[in-house]
Nucleic acid binder design. Sequence first.
DNA 1: CAGTTTTAGGAAAACGTTTTCCTAAAATAC
DNA 2: GTATTTTAGGAAAACGTTTTCCTAAAACTG
Lengths: 357, 357
Amino acid sequence: MPGEKEKKKRATIRDIADAVGIAPSSVSKALNDLPTISENMKTLVRAKARELNYKHNSNAANLRRGRSRTIGVIVPKINVAFFADIIAGIEQACFENDHRLIICQSHESFEREMQAVETLIQQNVDCVLISLSQETKTTDHLKEITNHNIQLVQFDRVDHTFGSHILVNDNREASFKAVQHLISQGYKKIAFFGGPDYLPLYKERKQGYLDAIGSAGLTIPYNFIVDNILKRAPAEVAATELLRLKFAPDAFFTVSDYAALGVLKAAERCGKKVPGDIGIIGFSNEAFTEVTSPTLSSVSQQSREMGRETAYIYFNYVLNHHDDDKAAHSLKLVIESAVIERESSVRKNKKGNKAGL
Amino acid sequence: MPGEKEKKKRATIRDIADAVGIAPSSVSKALNDLPTISENMKTLVRAKARELNYKHNSNAANLRRGRSRTIGVIVPKINVAFFADIIAGIEQACFENDHRLIICQSHESFEREMQAVETLIQQNVDCVLISLSQETKTTDHLKEITNHNIQLVQFDRVDHTFGSHILVNDNREASFKAVQHLISQGYKKIAFFGGPDYLPLYKERKQGYLDAIGSAGLTIPYNFIVDNILKRAPAEVAATELLRLKFAPDAFFTVSDYAALGVLKAAERCGKKVPGDIGIIGFSNEAFTEVTSPTLSSVSQQSREMGRETAYIYFNYVLNHHDDDKAAHSLKLVIESAVIERESSVRKNKKGNKAGL
DNA sequence: CAGTTTTAGGAAAACGTTTTCCTAAAATAC
DNA sequence: GTATTTTAGGAAAACGTTTTCCTAAAACTG
């Protein structure tokens, strides 16, 4: 072994070339399996590459090619189940298409989101997938992305006014179905705990609620509709307040499972039975909804599927439609959510499904 | 606007140079804030850079520098709370140190893990952080990493025989403390649901259990110790079986919260009160442990902290100790876990903390 | 004011690929 | 057996930085 210690340089294409006795350019072609190199030579080159422990240098290749086979994703928080699942889906799609993935978090901060965009542009990603932070109200930074000839796909938390591919939940329909489900169980005084009203996503969910109420011919007092209740604690407070009214709700639709959990605790504390006295359904189908007692009904957003689909908007667009302005000028896809009926909202126990599995 | 459509090229350092009237090399120096460029010129350059909407090209820079200010992390699954939190911690550390992060999943497959290693080497990451897949039994691929002058830090699921920096939980101590806690609550017939025994991590947890039992002078029948029970369903089956014995356990320590959940359900089904008749404590402090009833005691691994610390092994090692073989030849750090006492294991309700918050 | 040092910046090579354009040799055509 | 085409590979430029070594001019020194 010649010189154990001295920083052994990585083998390059040139080393292979020298060892095999051909030109570097031919090695490159061989490794890229171009038809202009003979099969014999290719196997020779591949063997030598393995022998020298050669690793392709993406930085050099990307620089020369101008593309990176890398996509970047920006999400508010990576360790929130919904986004973690989405990322898992994206990762899968990337793997299936031999792309790398760089992940950034905005931490719900607009500034961090801009920094992430900056980073991804610098990294020469081919495409950015983004779910906007709660603070984000302008789209100049998105413009930056497209200005640099980088593809852009927005998902879940999107700005509809900005022209890009978009993938969202059927928030309105999902909420509609959720409330319809409550109604079908005989609940009539259904309260709503929403999110910040300036986010389209939450607007849509509220609209779905209102539509369902309307189309069922129900009337709901104003104070049954409360915005900006996403966490457990505020939900518990707000629900307790409502439950103590003379005219109290007999069901709650919350746009967050955490809020649903808060409502459940409030009901317990007020001595109300769930689902007997009070029905509850949340949104997101968080893992914990399966382990509360009673288990919590919720709306499943199929987050993993959503991640895959988001990435595939890019892969299909860039792979198939290399012809630009075809159909796909600004795709809008909608992922259908599913109402998961669990104990907290199902009154008529058909076959005494109390204990569950 | 000159030519709206034609692929506008990204501005380069050379464009700035031409615009300002200096050499490209000087622009580079100015942007990197080297002292050999005057302040006036620097501000001039920066202004022009902004004006031309210049973005630094990392690929080019990395190629030339040989470093990438990027670290790669390989975990079994990104959408498991523990790893998602770890990654969140790593991401934070990366942000604080102005590094990029590339995330790969092994999906518990050895082959995927090797692929991930390959990818990260190709991407010229400066450092790889890895938690091994369950299938991983050899370390040639880790050797590959260090062969390419890439720093390596193993965390949580590590191979102690491979010489690298390592960060782990105090699995044995944590388990010891967990069992001690059960004992302190008056439980004496404590069963153990472990993981696959060939993984060091699970071996250690079992050892902690055995040590605690031993040092308390208790004796446990063989059938109270069951390996490879990590999920809810098998735990429920196994626990039910044990609870039906004449000599049945009065407490369970499980190395997974999912298993703990299974035990809880089994206890309910067998009509046993938790924590009155049966004590339960799990491991990992999954989010759902707070929402079951009774809430589940567990061992918190401080995953987020763990992620940060893992990354900081690299940052501190490479930043401070640029002198090689100092103290840090093969660091072994241990993160102290904490026993989180919730309802499922606390018998003597000191102040009637039944309903909880 | 001649000699020395410092300052501010420039020229050019280098990083490791890919790609375009060439060209010998081999194969085919007639 | 010459003319043409095909095949297999080579030479060199290019991608956009960083870095090393240089050098005029400016600033000191005495």
